[in-house]
Design a binder for these strands. Structure first.
Lengths: 315, 315
DNA sequence: CCGCGCTGATAACTTCCACCTATCAGGGCC
DNA sequence: GGCCCTGATAGGTGGAAGTTATCAGCGCGG
């Protein structure tokens, strides 16, 4: 059975005439006769009652006609979907990300992308940077959201800075250090320091904290690792320790926690949020995503600028 | 594009190897190469990334694979449905009927049929007998439920008696005649007689009533036609007139109306409910329906018999 | 480092079937 | 009865899908 048989059958069933159907299909009438006969013998079912005075659908033919119309429509749809997929307007986009980045730029960009490409299914997968890099190469993810400088980016993977955020202290709002609006690094180094262990063996957070102190030669209290985001948050809220996070991170939004920047400033006390993707033409969807990212980066600071100006005028 | 292209594509996409797919499809490998190439060029979309070390799906290929698997499954389903339809276990059955017959045997048989053939859509259409006969010939209905002897049954239409019911009087339970358990025809002939006009020009009911009196040479009061079932029922209930109906008819079930048989008996005071269908092998579904009817007719009286015997034993 | 074995692509040939034209048998209608 | 319509049949042709044989490129192991 081929689509040709189905197309021919539908034409005959709709015209109720072999000759008219043949005209419509731009073939000769005998071609239809043989094709329909072949189709019927393959099914083992008589679809059309035909005699010298015309054609009528059998009951089975009526049932088959319904299914066949559906089938042909879906064949067209399949073609259309393939073409959309090739243009990068339909398909799957798998995005790897680090948990603390779930607030701010990343969700904004995902929202905009979904609006612009409604037929693309976006799947979010939380994974460490090493897995993101490996996943990009293996095709498990097409885009990664990560923090710059934790791992070297191998050739074949491209990156772009999409946002930047201060590192600072996160702690209970009742904590004694919370009274100051800016906190010296040295004060923090004497406190009980907690690091989040999202998964076993995934020490990104602790490493980042150590680097912040080490870069300025400050000796700090030992860092205690806490497994699980919820436990980590609970320990911070109850004042059992403090931690270093990026300002845009999700913990800064907690009602019982406050974020305070350091007195010191510098590139080592900032973090760059980077998007990663695989070089080359592997995925049109990923390419579209990156294109949208660049656009968003170009417009977002401008939008902030406009807001400031508007505020200035109002005053 | 033909189903062959799709079958080949799915095989290659699943095996991720032209040679293995060729083995599976029992064709030579170059045949696959050309067919897949043709498919891609027709779509204008690259579905597979292939080089000397293997095959990979492109994004568009992944999307197309999903749609194509669905399509092939539905093609199989269409074939299966056609075969079921040919066996008469799937499709449409349109049944014409006269409104008063909606109680008793007919709904019982429809229920049994739906249980036995769950994939058959049964549609009920209320229509006069003449329309039923015409509809059977035209294929608008496959089965009719009607009353015997109102119209001659033309050749080409077959019939079977499925139930039998006494004709009697229907009236308000407060009507003076309602006190008697059996009523003489002559008493009824003096009352105000109402006939139901279901639709304009459809005088079946009135004709039946006239025939009941005429057959025994009884002169009766003029018959007033009432249009609409609800009006007819309301007039009976308020005692504005009485009428003749079959015992199994739906009006007998009304709380405010009573049915009384005549003192006289005879075949002219009974009605036979007949099922009609078109002769020949036009519809397997109709044939299945008729076969079930015969079975039901054979078992139903037996069931009644058993009930009676059981009642006798209990006493 | 070369060779072997795997990959899919290409070339040339064959086979088959979907198509054509011409014609036929049968029903409906004037 | 003759005409025109219907779909079916017969025989021939062309093209496409199939075949076998061979090639070029990559990867892996001796």
């Amino acid at each position: 059975m081929e689509l040709r048989h189905l197309r021919y059958f539908v034409a005959v069933a709709e015209e109720l005439s072999y000759r008219k159907a043949a005209d419509r299909l731009h073939v000769a009438q005998p071609a239809l006769s043989t094709q329909i006969r072949d189709l019927e013998s393959e099914l083992g079912v008589r679809l059309l009652d035909r005699n010298t005075s015309g054609v009528r659908l059998t009951d089975a033919g009526a049932v088959f006609l319904g299914r066949t119309r559906l089938l042909l429509a879906q064949a067209q749809e399949a073609v259309a979907h393939a073409r959309e997929a090739a243009k990068g307007t339909r398909g799957q986009l798998r995005v790897g990300y680090l948990a603390p980045l779930l607030v701010g730029f990343m969700p904004t960009s995902l929202k905009k992308f979904s609006e612009q490409y409604p037929e693309v299914d976006v799947t979010l997968v939380e994974m460490p940077i090493a897995d993101q890099i490996a996943g990009l190469a293996a095709g498990e993810i097409q885009v990664g959201f990560t923090i710059k400088g934790l791992l070297p980016i191998p050739p074949g993977v491209q990156e772009i800075e999409v946002a930047r955020s201060r590192i600072g202290v996160i702690m209970s709002r009742h904590h004694r250090l919370a009274k100051k609006s800016r906190i010296p690094l040295a004060d923090v180094a004497r406190e009980t320091l907690l690091s989040l262990l999202v998964k076993k063996g995934w020490t990104v957070h602790g490493d980042l904290m150590r680097r912040s102190f080490a870069g300025r030669g400050i000796r700090h209290a030992p860092i205690k690792s806490v497994e699980g985001t919820e436990t980590f948050r609970a320990m911070l809220e109850s004042g059992l320790g403090i931690s270093l996070v990026v300002e845009i991170g999700s913990l800064s939004r907690s009602r019982d926690l406050v974020f305070r920047p350091f007195v010191e400033t510098g590139p080592d006390l900032e973090m760059e949020l980077h998007a990663l993707w695989r070089e080359g033409n592997s995925s049109r969807i990923a390419a579209n995503f990156v294109a949208m990212l660049r656009e968003l980066i170009a417009t977002l600071p401008a939008a902030r600028q406009r807001k400031k100006e508007a505020a200035g005028i109002r005053r």
